[in-house]
């Protein structure tokens, strides 16, 4: 496990961090560090413990045991001081539906004790940043999912946070809205904002994260950069084959030796290989006739499959 050499520079430092509810262990003794200026990801399926971890970092949930420091402070005793320097994008939008778009940013800035004129100016700048300036005086309810998400992100930036926490920033958004959010987050990263995000999308992590940990069943099962994880736990390319329904039993043994590793999923077969096209040719040579073949680069999805034996999104 990658542990940063000097704990003092880490913005977040966790050792043996656990969260237990009455009859459930949500987070089970995890260790991690997040350094200044990096984009750090928690990846895993629903229920892996990502959100519980985020809530502990955000000082709205008390750890059951272990050590946690955020911005060099103790979340239990310094909650308000830590939260003053955090920006939080929760999993579900918690916008103030009774207030207008710009009022949402203004009042949120006031919660941080930001002077009124500064709050007003920042609200205006941030609405431009998330491309909602023409909706400033509108109600929140009719905004699309992507717009609400961008507004929530703008809201999280209103105190110019040292650390931005994003819990599944693009879940439920359509591809276009998603790319727009990614673009804005990428710009923030360029500006040096430290970002911690959770996701169950591998492509999101690949796009945004410098370093990530893969969580499964309350534990960290792997960590590293997206590329290093792919290198370690997958191959360069993947060949995806789809066969006619019920054809799978007939495959028995026929794919052996073509790829480094074969995964048979309910709806398709994945062949992990350095050269997808060559593998596809070999499949056809053996007289197999898949309905479709697809060669693609391997992704973190494949890493997750390898680590846990399960597909990431059920």
């Amino acid at each position: 496990m990658a542990i940063s050499p000097s704990d003092t520079t880490a913005l977040i430092h966790a050792r043996g961090l656990s969260k237990r509810f009455a009859n459930l262990v949500a987070v089970d003794a995890i260790d991690f560090d997040v350094d200044r200026g990096e984009a750090f990801g928690f990846l895993g399926p629903n229920g892996a413990g990502k959100t519980s971890t985020m809530r502990m970092i955000g000082c709205v949930s008390t750890p059951s045991s272990g050590t946690l420091s955020v911005l060099g402070m103790n979340p239990i005793t310094d909650g308000p001081r830590i939260r003053a320097r955090l920006g939080v994008v929760p999993q579900a939008d918690t916008l103030d539906m009774e207030l207008h778009v710009d009022e949402n940013l203004f009042t949120y800035a006031r919660y941080f004790d930001i002077p009124r004129d500064v709050a007003r100016r920042r609200a205006k700048e941030l609405l431009e940043f998330v491309q909602l300036n023409d909706r400033a005086k509108d109600e929140v309810e009719p905004l699309s999912g992507g717009m609400k998400r961008r507004l929530t992100i703008a809201r999280a930036l209103v105190n110019e946070p040292d650390l931005l926490l994003l819990d599944e920033p693009t879940t439920g958004l359509d591809p276009q809205a998603r790319h727009l959010v990614w673009d804005r987050l990428y710009r923030l990263k360029q500006q040096g904002v430290t970002i911690v995000l959770t996701s169950h999308y591998m492509d999101e992590a690949e796009q945004l994260c410098d370093r990530l940990v893969v969580m499964d069943k309350a534990k960290i099962v792997a960590s590293g950069s997206p590329r290093s994880l792919i290198d370690r736990y997958a191959t360069r390319e993947v060949l995806e084959l789809r066969f006619k329904i019920d054809a799978a039993p007939a495959l028995d043994g026929k794919l052996e030796g073509i790829a480094d590793r074969v995964e048979v999923l309910p709806d398709r077969v994945l062949l992990y290989t350095q050269d997808g096209d060559a593998a596809a040719a070999a499949v056809h040579e053996r007289g197999l006739q898949p309905e479709s073949t697809l060669v693609r680069r391997s992704t973190l999805e494949d890493v997750f499959l390898r680590l846990t034996g399960r597909s990431l999104i059920e």
Binding site: V88, P90, T94, Y108
Partner: peptide, 8 residues
Amino acid sequence: DAVLATPL
């Protein structure tokens, strides 16, 4: 939930 993410 949103308010508690701030110093409040």
